[in-house]
Amino acid sequence: MFLSADGTTTGLIEAWTGEKLVADVRQQARATSAESALWPLEEPGGPLLARYVRLCGATSGRAWLYGRSLLDLTALPVQMREEILFDMMPLGRSLVRHRVETFRTLQSVDCTAPPSAEFGGTPINLPCRTVLIQAGGVCAAVITEWFDSDRLFALAIPAH
């Protein structure tokens, strides 16, 4: 369900877990040349922002998802740029709040380890997907999301 959905991941995980999610921004800076090489389409309108976040339960503090977003801020409304840069709001929630019409394309589904330098801990392979988000006909973001499947799927199994 999570790997193939084309809606906002934040809302799906909130519905699944029963708790509001908050973005724990681990790193946010101008994309390196290696990160910029992951941009799949035309040249971005400006420098890319690389953002590494954990989506955590507001009550439990559990990390449900690890995400890397490459963002072309020039493709987004000014108010949304400020919200992403300074308020640390999850990207999907900000897109909805600002009513940005988007077209999402699933680029890949895999099972790899999230970047340990950005998220810490011992890298383990997790189910992940990469999604391209277009706004106004241009690529606005490329997002890779790693799902903590053990925690998410444990919710689907009734306790005995």
Rank of each mutant, 00 (worst) to 15 (best):
F2E: 08
F2Y: 11
F2I: 10
S4W: 09
A5K: 07
D6R: 11
D6F: 07
D6L: 10
G7M: 09
G11F: 02
L12E: 00
T17W: 08
T17P: 05
E19I: 01
K20L: 15
K20P: 10
V22I: 14
A23G: 03
D24K: 06
A29Y: 12
T32I: 11
T32K: 11
T32V: 12
T32Y: 12
E35P: 07
E35C: 08
E35F: 09
S36G: 08
S36Y: 07
S36W: 07
S36A: 14
L38V: 09
W39I: 07
E42K: 10
E42G: 12
E42R: 11
E42P: 08
G45F: 01
G46D: 07
G46P: 04
L48Q: 04
L48I: 04
L49E: 03
A50M: 03
A50I: 02
R51E: 01
R51A: 02
Y52I: 05
Y52G: 01
V53F: 06
V53Y: 02
L55Q: 02
C56H: 11
S60P: 09
G61R: 08
G61I: 08
A63M: 05
A63Y: 05
G67W: 00
L70P: 02
D72S: 01
L73W: 01
T74P: 05
T74K: 07
L76Q: 00
P77Y: 04
M80E: 03
M80L: 09
M80S: 03
R81H: 09
E82C: 11
I84E: 00
L85M: 14
F86D: 10
F86W: 13
M88E: 13
M88A: 15
M88D: 13
P90N: 04
P90V: 00
L91N: 03
G92M: 03
G92I: 04
L95K: 02
L95S: 00
L95E: 01
V100Y: 01
V100E: 04
R104D: 08
T105R: 12
T105V: 11
S108M: 10
S108R: 13
V109E: 09
V109C: 10
D110M: 11
P115V: 00
P115K: 05
A117Y: 14
A117G: 14
E118Y: 14
E118P: 06
G120L: 14
P123A: 06
N125Q: 15
C128W: 04
R129Y: 07
R129I: 07
L132Y: 08
I133C: 00
Q134R: 10
Q134E: 11
V138E: 09
V138A: 09
C139N: 06
C139S: 07
C139K: 02
A140L: 02
A140S: 03
E145Y: 00
W146T: 04
W146H: 04
F147E: 00
D150L: 13
D150K: 14
R151M: 14
R151I: 13
F153T: 14
L155E: 12
A156G: 15
A159D: 14
